[in-house]
Amino acid sequence: MHLTDTHVHIDHYPNPQKVAEAYERLKIYTLFVTNLPELFEANYSSYQNYKYIRLCLGFHPQLASEFPFDELLFNKLINKTKYIGEVGLDFLNEHNEIKNKQVNIFDYITSPKFNKGRIYTIHSRNSEEQVLEILVQNKVKHAIFHWYSGNLLTLEKILERGYYFSLNPKMLKTKNGLKVIERLPHDRILFETDGPFSRYNKEVIGPTSIEKSYKDFSRIIPYFEKNVYKNFRRILIERDLY
């Protein structure tokens, strides 16, 4: 099988090295997202020799109230990767000062001087329209909306821009998740675990759960594995061409 995981926080597992080795052993193409530039820097040297894992440079919007965004460090690290994430906005229960801070950081991270030839994995809870607006303004070509939970009208607008959606197994368990899945064309779907912040069969999801998760999705999406792998290859080719 050709398996992928386009959004996982390997450094948040109790034993990150063991998890990373499992991804390698199972030959799962993996985007390891980080929540701060400092965490990307801390993990960079340890993950350079992996064949299937790519480290992403991120700043999680929910950390904007706790940590300053280090522009100098971000600028220093940006040329070390073609993958940016987890980044975006999260307006759930946030006051305006923090929302504005998130917007400024996300606008900077996605600016034209950084986004050429890079793939973004996007957090957009309660802020889907604002995220899309910034991506469009900055002419971001390659973005993956991670675990999308917004309305279907905005989903259609996102599709019109050619962006992708990474599907999480938890989406199969909710009405809204199933509605989102039903509306997505098969040429715009990818797969993610968001591990370890998600569960599969009541256990923390990990690389050994991915093949079973694919089979769950294949019950409602024909040729799920084939479509996801084809889409993953396409977004990489699109990135390189751009």
Rank of each mutant, 00 (worst) to 15 (best):
H60S: 05
I84H: 02
E94A: 11
H95F: 10
G117V: 15
N79A: 13
F91W: 06
S46Y: 02
I109F: 06
S111H: 09
N104I: 11
F91H: 14
K82V: 08
G58V: 06
K99A: 06
G85T: 02
I109G: 00
F114W: 11
E66L: 08
L89M: 07
L92H: 05
L55R: 06
E97I: 15
Q48H: 06
K80E: 03
L73D: 04
E86N: 03
F91C: 13
K51G: 01
L73M: 07
E71A: 12
D70A: 09
L92K: 10
P112E: 14
D70T: 04
N75K: 10
Y108K: 08
N100Y: 10
F67A: 08
F59Q: 12
I84E: 01
E94M: 11
S46D: 02
N93K: 11
E66F: 14
I78Y: 03
N93V: 14
L57M: 05
Y83L: 03
D107W: 04
G88H: 06
G85A: 13
K101C: 11
Y47I: 02
K116D: 11
N100T: 12
N75W: 15
N75R: 05
N115Y: 15
L63V: 11
L89C: 09
V87C: 04
Y108D: 08
V87D: 00
K99C: 15
F106W: 03
K113M: 12
I105S: 00
D107V: 12
F67R: 15
Q102F: 07
I84Y: 04
D90N: 05
A64W: 14
F67D: 10
I98V: 12
F67I: 06
V87T: 01
K116I: 14
Y83V: 04
T81N: 06
L77M: 05
F114T: 11
I53N: 00
T81Y: 04
V103Y: 01
K51P: 00
C56L: 13
V103P: 04
R54H: 07
Y50T: 00
G117L: 10
L57V: 04
I78K: 02
Q62I: 12
K76E: 09
K113I: 09
K76D: 14
K51Q: 11
E71P: 06
G88M: 14
